[in-house]
């Protein structure tokens, strides 16, 4: 299917480079929010041409059932989720899902998970021989008993995961960092030195909700990951903290955490996001991508900024 050009030729250039890849727009649909890449095409008017990349749902070596319900719950200005990495296993994703995706319309990235260094490395090895153009390392999932955030909260362990995967693939590796981490900049430094080509900042914050009538936690897993506008100030601050070390090594940041409006997107760009992650915002508005791109373009025209990459990190000191 032919897709009409998004903008007039004189429009600002919204493409961006990320970990050696060229993204057609800075928008990246985040892992866990968009299934295995095809789900949002159910929506009339959704177009892969609006996004630079789609990150597939977190994938482990073997299939996982995930957590018992309830798995999601709205909280003020956000939501909790504890899906528990439900996925059909890496081999199935590669054999059955990736061949059916339209790789000519956007890029698809994997999101790799494991409960041991060997599993992370094996998942990387499997995806190395596949059409995904990058692999995001999830060392910050708060909803599984082993691996996930338990690796991400230990900077040395995080770096070991990156190193193990680095040895297993030549594809760009993007490490997804946890805001639950004591020193995110130090974790970022160790991950970069271990071979990470990019950083995703931030994953969800751990939280819980309580049903006062049942007197139980609402979420089946008891705790869940908090996302949405409630975490946006945390996300901006964590990106700001990570930016110096990332810049020093010329490593891009995929900024994310509560981006739900065009104004949010500009804030994430200003603080230093080479790419912009959309997750919970898609649940508010499944056609958010086109609106964010329009807002970005209008802002850039108004401020005479020709390229998205010129906007990245333009934040001034007060």
């Amino acid at each position: 299917m032919m897709t009409a050009p998004l903008f007039e030729p004189t429009s600002p250039d919204l493409s961006t480079t990320f970990a050696g890849l060229t993204l057609q727009t800075p928008l990246v649909l985040l892992s866990g929010c968009v299934g295995f890449g095809d789900e949002y095409t159910r929506i009339e008017g959704y177009s892969h041409a609006h996004v630079g990349a789609v990150i597939l749902k977190g994938t482990t070596l073997e299939p996982r059932m995930g957590n018992k319900p309830h798995r999601v719950y709205e909280t003020p200005s956000g939501m909790l989720n504890a899906i528990g990495l439900q996925n059909p296993g890496a081999r199935y994703v590669i054999d059955e899902i990736l061949p059916k995706l339209p790789h000519d319309q956007t890029q698809f990235w994997a999101n790799a998970n494991g409960s041991s260094l060997d599993e992370y490395a094996e998942v990387a090895r499997i995806f190395d021989d596949s059409p995904v153009t990058a692999i995001e390392i999830n060392i910050s999932c708060p909803n599984v008993k082993e691996g996930g955030v338990h690796f991400g909260n230990d900077p040395c362990m995080a770096a070991k995961v990156v190193a193990a995967m680095r040895a297993a693939t030549s594809k760009p590796l993007i490490t997804k960092l946890s805001p639950n981490n004591a020193d995110i900049a130090e974790t970022a430094r160790l991950c970069i030195e271990a071979g990470s080509d990019g950083l995703s900042v931030i994953n969800t914050l751990v939280g819980m909700a309580i049903d006062i009538e049942q007197r139980t936690p609402v979420i089946g897993n008891i705790s869940g990951g908090l996302s949405g506008p409630a975490v946006k100030p945390v996300a901006l601050w964590k990106i700001h903290q990570t930016r110096a070390i990332a810049q020093k090594h010329n490593i891009p940041i995929l900024g994310q955490g509560g981006l739900t409006t065009p104004k949010d997107a500009i804030e994430f760009a200003l603080v230093g996001s080479q790419a912009l992650g959309l997750g919970t915002g898609l649940f508010y508005d499944p056609l958010l991508c086109g609106k964010v791109l329009k807002g970005l373009r209008d802002y850039m025209v108004r401020h005479d900024i020709a390229r998205y990459e010129d906007l990245v990190g333009m934040l001034q000191q007060p």
Binding site: G32, C33, V34, G35, E39, Y40, R42, I43, K57, G66, K68, P69, H70, R71, V72, Y73, M79, N81, I83, Q86, T280, L282, F283, P286
Partner: peptide
Amino acid sequence: EHMACAIGGCAGCVVE
């Protein structure tokens, strides 16, 4: 069930 995306993207609303 509690539901987030409603298009199959998040796997939030499952039944065994």
